[in-house]
Amino acid sequence: MLEVKDLVVTAGGVRIVDGVSFEVRPGEVLGMVGESGSGKTMTMLAVAGLLPGPARITGGTAALYGTELTEARLERIRGRRIGFVFQDPATSLNPLMRVGAQIAEVLRIHGLGRTAARRRAVELLEQVGIGPERARVYPHELSGGMRQRIVIAMAIALRPALLIADEPTTALDVTVQEQIMRVLRAAQRETGAATVLVSHDLGLVSEAAHRIAVMYSGRLVETGTADEVLGAPRHPYSAALMRSRPRIGAGRGPLPVIPGHPPAPKSRPPGCAFHPRCPVALARCAQEVPPLAGGVACWAVQDG
């Protein structure tokens, strides 16, 4: 069980993640969606203790089965209990090491003997659909999709309690996307890990996630089941986003667009960050930040 509460991440004096709260239960997949720059990656890097240089956690908590994750001394616990799959498999792999040995190394660092680690590495390869004969190849000898499967094998090697996949298929060919998602879902079911799937691709998330969290300008604006959020979104931003998706059958013609673009964190407007673009904004929207209540952070929804 992952519990994140009022998480704030600051970089260069700006709150790039601004009070985010959510939970993920064991075996559950939370799909985190939002446009580029909305803070999805920073939120999950903060949870995993992997924030880059200038960014720091300056508020809130994140706990995995009651163990606080935001404290630096818990480095080892994190490495063991959180598996991370990044967008670009190359960032997670050592180009000079055979892939089987890389998986085995993860296991050995955490106490498995040499032979047991080798045997388990082969099992893991099989689990992600790669034959044992490939254990001895180097990353560059594999396709992008296969490399990402190696990264998934490494991420689940220690049976993590939390699995985070940040745009796991974005850098890959469309044709291998489906395969990677299958492998990821099988791995997730097998480990029973609480899972966060970060993606800007609503279609992909709708197929894989039980629940959805929508981010806008560093804040969470709506959460709910996948059917609720994608099928009947209540927050004006999520609703506008769903409407702007092209659909087969809608025919040729202009799409309903959201005017303007999302603000950068340093020029986030006061009150509800969406208010300059919101078709139903009220007077108080420009002054007070709406809290996430009943799954929606919106004054119009809460008052209406």
């Binding site: 506008a240 092209p246 799409l255």
Partner: peptide, 11 residues
């Protein structure tokens, strides 16, 4: 492109 930007460019 993101969904909302995609819609703007299509239009």
């Amino acid at each position: 492109l993101d969904v909302s930007v995609q819609a703007q460019i299509i239009n």
